[in-house]
Write a protein that binds this DNA or RNA. Structure first.
Length: 524
RNA sequence: CGGGGUAUAGCGCAGUCCGGUAGCGCACCUGGUUUGGGACCAGGGGGUCGCAGGUUCGAAUCCUGCUACCCCGACCA
């Protein structure tokens, strides 16, 4: 998608040169696009905007099953791109994929006390394995004679089944480390659900690693956090804070939970990924020991980490606007769409042929292109449609362009369009895609910077939390204070940023001494 | 699990108060004119009115009971 040599050039300068070049070659004018409104606007009702958008951009819809969504082809294509890149990053760091069962014996959950407490309230349980004809109404009913000996829990996460398995795999330090990831679905029976952000069933990857030492496990935990943040920033184009969760926010069963936190356009925070240092909790619960180099028997050290289809929600809420989705080029199922414009059959044939020729030349550069040459929809309809779906670049080629050797090129991120020479496309498009990826990120970065506030008094805190954004404030480190703040403002501590500097101060709520600032926000 | 709302064509809705041939917009089908920002004209197809009972000569409409979904809270990634 990007030409390799761009990476070794100063991209900004290169791009400027390209542009000054064009302005000599061709006449172009930048126009702003105006569009019919099909979405609720963000200012009118942000959550309605989100719901509208997910449905209208064809990402997903609600299913016949309460709380469970159907991810539609266009949405799934984005998820596949997310998967492909993360999978590549995991494998590059020596992780391998495997698959563990969907069903977990109920007794496994009781082994780790913290863990069970965290998930018990939202587990789906399989109790029977057979249906039978219901004589009363002609339908089907559960066969009471087919009750399972031990009930099975539909996995809300797989630590227990995996550590029960690792017990058989690990005997010696020579068996370590184990660096396994699985792509799977999990079920958490949520009360209130929203497409992608919180659904009863969702897709994710969960990594589960086993190590000889605490240090090695911590290193793994942070390595993954780094992968997540790199992925978020370079692919999702969302700047994230890397940080540590407080005790009350951490994963049930972990010693430390690290996270990446992103800020959405409505000023609410969204946790986009987590990486846990599990210590020896699961090794002890499932009796996973190894013979060390010194011949001693030791418990194994563990990590687990995951990102889910929730990232899709983050992607939508971070960048999109009142006209629809805005997708970063690196994750867009189609980076470019070409729309032929014509009146006569001859013009149709000619523009269509040229469109396909352009597509072929761009495909050779690794750009994904779709030609929409359907005769059943009008150009205006198509323009609106691809804007709604967030296609980064749109090319329109009509009779005038055929004569002049030009083409109209419209950017989704800035909603601007201009006319350039066709023979420049293979140079301009890759550079523009790269530029769009960067612009989207920069916009999100600027938004976060403008919505992150240092707050030192409680009055100020109360005012600012209503406005939204990240609040950087001192906290005395007491869970009771954290709870009090949450009860009073609905704000939680999103994380203790890893790059936070030691700074003496007074807790924003209690006035007790504090050694560093933490990030507060209302969150999804 | 509390509080509120909704259920009528694929989608969005009106009709319900005051019972009497089930409607509108979009979408869909056919033909024509159109096509550089969601085209227009003409014709056409499509609904056991969420489900189950009840009242009535007659129920989308009145009564009873279910169910599902949405929104706001409590809980969570």
């Amino acid at each position: 998608m990007m030409l390799p040599f761009y990476e070794v050039l100063n991209i900004g300068d290169y791009f400027l040169n390209l542009y000054s070049h064009f302005s000599i070659l061709i006449k172009y004018c930048t126009k702003h696009i105006k569009m019919a409104k099909v979405l609720t606007s963000r200012s009118e009702n942000y959550s309605q905007w989100y719901n509208d958008l997910v449905i209208k951009a064809d990402l997903a819809e609600n299913s016949a099953v309460r709380g469970c969504m159907v991810i539609k082809p266009y949405g799934y294509a984005i998820w596949e791109k997310i998967q492909a890149e993360l999978d590549r990053m995991f494998k590059e760091t020596d992780h391998v994929n495997a698959y563990f069962p969907l069903f977990i014996p109920k007794s496994f959950f009781s082994r780790e006390a913290q863990h069970v407490e965290g998930f018990a309230k939202e587990c789906a349980v399989v109790t029977h394995y057979r249906l039978m004809k219901d004589e009363e109404n002609g339908g089907l009913k559960v066969d009471p004679s087919a009750k399972l000996e031990e009930e099975l829990v539909v996995r809300p996460t797989s630590e227990t089944i995996i550590w029960n398995t690792y017990k058989n795999w690990i005997h010696s330090y020579r068996d370590l480390p184990i660096l396994i990831n699985q792509w799977a679905n999990v079920v958490r029976w949520e009360m209130r659900t929203r497409l992608f952000l919180r659904t009863a069933e969702f897709l994710w990857q969960e990594g589960h690693t086993a190590h000889e030492t605490s240090e090695e496990a911590v290193e793994e935990t942070l390595k993954i956090l780094g992968i997540y943040s790199t992925f978020a920033e370079e692919f999702l184009a969302i700047p994230v804070l890397k940080g540590l969760k407080t005790d009350s926010e951490k994963f049930a069963g972990a010693l430390d939970t690290y996270c990446i936190e992103a800020l959405m356009q409505d000023g609410k925070a969204l946790q986009a990924g987590t990486s846990h240092f599990l210590g020896q909790n699961f090794a002890k619960a499932f009796d996973v020991k190894y013979a060390s180099r010194e011949g001693r028997e030791e418990y194994v050290w563990a990590t687990s980490w995951g990102v889910s289809t929730r990232l899709m929600g983050a992607l939508v809420m971070a960048h999109s606007d009142d006209n629809g989705l805005v997708l970063p080029p690196k994750l867009a199922p189609q980076q470019v769409v070409i729309i032929p414009i014509y009146k006569t059959p001859e013009e149709y044939a000619a523009t269509r042929e040229r469109a396909h020729a352009i597509k072929d030349s761009l495909k050779k550069l690794g750009v994904s292109v779709k030609v929409d040459d359907r005769d059943t929809q009008k150009p205006g309809w198509k323009f609106a449609e691809y804007e709604l779906k967030g296609v980064p670049l749109r090319l329109a080629i009509g009779p005038r362009d055929m004569q002049n050797g030009t083409i109209e090129i419209a950017r989704r991120d800035t909603l601007t369009k201009e006319v350039i020479a066709q023979d420049q496309l293979t140079t301009v498009i890759p550079a523009l895609l790269d530029e769009i990826q960067r612009t989207i990120y920069n916009k999100a970065f600027k938004f976060r910077a403008e919505n992150t506030f240092n707050v030192d008094t409680w009055d100020e805190f109360l005012v600012q939390i209503e406005k939204g954004g990240f609040i950087s404030a001192h906290w005395d480190g007491d869970a009771a204070t954290e709870k009090m703040i949450q009860d009073e403002t609905k704000a939680t501590i999103r994380c203790i940023p890893l790059d936070s500097v030691a700074e003496a101060g007074l807790c924003v709520r209690t006035g007790k001494p504090s050694v560093r600032r933490v990030i507060f926000a209302r969150s999804y």
